[in-house]
Design a protein around this nucleic acid. Structure first.
Lengths: 301, 301
DNA sequence: CGCTCAACCGCAAACGTTTGCATTACGGGT
DNA sequence: ACCCGTAATGCAAACGTTTGCGGTTGAGCG
């Protein structure tokens, strides 16, 4: 040990990984980190990895072609598992990993294939909570601002929101924002708010969508929540800022990471077990972009 | 090739790295990703890695002890190079890498040790630009909101700002925010703005500091820029939001990443070359948290 | 037809570990 | 003093590549 110390020797994990059955590498595939929620997730995940003594191989998925993403090269490093947290990625990526015999954990989507587990929010429940809050506080013209069904989560959130609205006899305008980009979101919101029937209750598929929406409303001179209520999703740090004080659905990122790691470990100990889907409940955080109670009847009609 | 395809064989990069001289792994050490600038940097860096065919090993530095960070374990994977982008990390980390014979690139700080290159902003120049703008638009009571000298960049930004202020015969209040946390920043700003001599020109060491500062000013009923001008640093996407429209110093993150990769390559081709420090100029982006011209004399005194 | 040269091909060593097996050392019981 | 069982120790194989070397094959030319 003294000699090892003196020569500052350290075992090569490459060699260890080559011969051993485990490399202690986990590949994380992410899309853009433009959404603060994704950054927070990555931050939390990476700290959990460090605490666990596992290394994190980060692959950024730019295009939708599996071979273009860093995924393939990461696989060639014989990771022990792959976590896919890029919402817009095609299932081809997962299949690639499964074919390589790797456990796959999907964050934010469900895929029914052997060896593929999932961790995601109770999106439908969250959508329902948002709808119920808006309806309870007097909103009647509801709208959803989202990715136009581009991601699994987006579809579920819309579905939950729309179902609860329907149950109350209300319809929902579905407004899509094409690119994940603040100005694009601002423009889509402006279009929505200047359209034929201006909504008075808006549910956004993410806080990062809700904030530009609030700005668009204010730019049009619309009071939030007096003329339009806004509910977000994720409860990112930005949402609590004084300029927004956004009512939103808290999605506990620490819990997500914890569940992902638990699923990985459980898959190690039993590679052939059935797939598992873990749903994490969202919690409503009421701030000031929604009303406390319905407006007085005297004001209306 | 047909057989390889059929068996879906892929060469093991572990084995290749074991025998070859290059592993095509680069370790990136980062602190928290709470600042959107750091998230943007990581995003850009990771995409550049993918385009380059290099894998990114992400180590998150939680404590200041080198052995606690993922750094050590990442080194044991025989990375080709280490990029340290965690501002508050001790030089012990770099020394560890140098001792292991690894090229080190420091982002945001300078360390005079063999094999250690640096890429960072022209912080002093940026500080000067901020001071000159504030002074030119009529501010006379200047303040700096930063990390109290906790990071290399912070010290340089303050130094450049203070030097330019001194050249104009003005002093600078140095207000430190202890934790990188929005509410802590809000409180520190409130303390600054309710102190003995309230500043009328504020330079913040980062946009992520400037935004809570603006909110604190507004909470106190102070108009921005009428009663206090604010200048940030980095030009993160948030800064352009309609709620803030922050005047700031653009620090081109793409350029930073490009320079880091260039330094790594140049170090590969000549491991013994002298250290290089690349300074990247900042560019002033004037928005609406600073005045266009000095206020009318009639209003004053 | 024979020579030379280049291209090609196959083989073995090496990279730094882990793991299993065989051997040796040692201690206790009869 | 002898035997047995266990602990400790040393040795070799294996992991999946790259690289260099010796041998073989083929083509071109006199």
């Amino acid at each position: 040990m003294a000699a090892a110390e003196r020569l500052n020797y350290r075992p090569s994990l490459l060699a260890r990984g080559l011969v051993g059955s485990r490399t202690n590498l986990i590949t994380l595939v992410m899309g853009s980190l433009a959404d603060p929620f994704d950054a927070l997730f990555l931050d939390t995940f990476s700290q959990a990895m460090a605490a666990r003594g596992t290394r994190l191989l980060l692959a950024s998925a730019t295009s939708n072609e599996p071979q273009d993403s860093g995924l393939l090269q990461a696989l060639d490093y014989r990771s022990d598992a792959v976590v896919i947290a890029a919402g817009t990625l095609s299932p081809a990526h997962s299949e690639l990993c499964v074919k390589a015999g790797l456990p796959v954990i999907l964050a934010g989507r469900v895929l029914d294939a052997p060896g593929v587990d999932s961790v995601l929010a109770d999106n439908r429940g969250g959508g329902r909570q948002a709808a119920e809050l808006l309806i309870r506080t007097g909103c009647r013209r509801l709208a959803y601002l989202g990715r136009g069904g581009a991601t699994f989560s987006d579809r579920e959130r819309f579905a939950g929101f729309a179902a609860a609205a329907r149950a109350a006899g209300l319809k929902v305008i579905d407004q899509a924002v094409a690119q994940r980009d603040d100005t694009a979101t601002f423009q889509a919101s402006t279009a929505l708010l200047t359209g034929d029937s201006r909504p008075d209750g808006l549910f956004c598929g993410a806080d990062s969508l809700a904030i530009p929406a609030i700005e668009a409303a204010r730019a049009l001179g619309l009071g939030v929540p007096e003329e339009i209520s806004v509910v977000g999703f994720n409860n990112v740090p930005n949402a609590a800022w004084r300029s927004f004080r956004l009512t939103t659905l808290d999605y506990p990122v620490g819990q997500v990471v914890e569940d992902i790691l638990a699923l990985i470990d459980s898959r190690f100990s039993d590679p052939l077990r059935d797939n598992e889907v873990r749903r994490i409940a969202t919690q409503l955080v009421v701030r000031t972009t929604t009303r406390q109670r319905p407006p007085q009847e005297t004001a209306a009609s």
